[in-house]
């Protein structure tokens, strides 16, 4: 692949894999959420994310040009080939961790999609346009819950602060850019991620302040996902998600 196609492939994987892995995590709540209404809302979110996955991974397969479908990419790659933000694969732990993870990624996804709607690549602009509205709703909902729970009871506050302390370091890699990203940004295909970082910071700082939560200081996490280095959780998630296609290759309904 030429450098431009390779960068495009990476971008489509980053968007698609993040939606896929987060969607798979959120779907683990199906039938287990603290209230029926919340159960349905989480399932809706997971399904929305899987819809976004389908579009991004289809594009990735097209760009790659080796005839791999979205399903092939989702079910037949190993952990080191995944490019999802490492935060997405972190376990649900409790409702607080789930909602905090959702909020931090929703805020990222919203900014990325807003930018990608103006992409010079019409395929990217079209996918981002379809995904942007539902993601705006996801963000409204997760932000609202973070504020309610953070600024809620003593217990809900403690749980949200614990979630933030654990998950915050994984946001370090959100807006990193490599040569490929610079290439796409220069051609107006991908976002100028350096310009997005302060916008994300502003959004998150305002909401976390309203939630009376303190952003932990002095804890950083090196970039991982761009080189396919994941936490131990991704392998377990993939084992659950991929086992059927691995055990019965090509199985269909």
């Amino acid at each position: 692949m030429e450098a431009r196609e390779a960068a495009l492939f990476e971008l489509a994987l980053r968007m698609g894999d993040t939606a896929l892995i987060l969607g798979q995590r959120v779907s683990e709540w199906c039938g287990h959420a603290p209230a029926l209404e919340e159960d349905i809302a989480l399932a809706n979110t997971a399904l929305d994310l899987l819809g976004q996955t389908q579009m991004w991974l289809e594009l990735a397969g097209e760009v790659e040009g080796k005839g791999r479908s979205a399903d092939d990419l989702a079910f037949l790659r190993d952990a080191w080939d995944f490019r999802n933000l490492v935060l997405a694969e972190q376990p649900n732990t409790d409702f607080g961790h789930t909602i905090m993870r959702q909020y931090l990624i929703d805020a990222w996804n919203r900014l990325m999609l807003d930018e990608l709607q103006n992409s010079a690549d019409a395929r990217i602009a079209s996918i981002a346009g379809k995904a942007a509205r539902e993601t705006a709703y996801h963000l409204e909902r997760s932000r609202d819950l973070v504020i309610r729970l953070g600024d809620g009871s003593e217990e809900s506050h403690a749980r949200m602060q614990a979630a933030l302390n654990t998950l915050w370091p994984f946001t370090d890699e959100f807006f990193e850019a490599d040569d490929g990203d610079a290439l796409l940004a220069a051609e107006g295909i991908g976002p100028d991620t350096a310009a997005l970082a302060p916008q994300w910071q502003r959004e998150v700082q305002a909401s976390l302040a309203a939630a009376t939560l303190d952003i932990p200081e002095g804890r950083t996490n090196p970039s991982r996902s761009r080189s396919g280095r994941h936490t131990e959780h991704l392998g377990h998630l993939l084992a659950t998600m991929q086992w059927l296609q691995r055990a019965y290759p090509g199985a269909r309904w």
Binding site: A35, L36, E37, I40, A41, Y137, R141
Partner: peptide, 20 residues
């Protein structure tokens, strides 16, 4: 009908439960 802590969340829950 559905359960929700307040009106704003009732609207959101209704969106998710009844307008899918």
């Amino acid at each position: 009908s559905l359960h929700a802590p307040d009106a704003e969340m009732a609207i959101r829950n209704a969106r998710d439960v009844y307008t899918r």
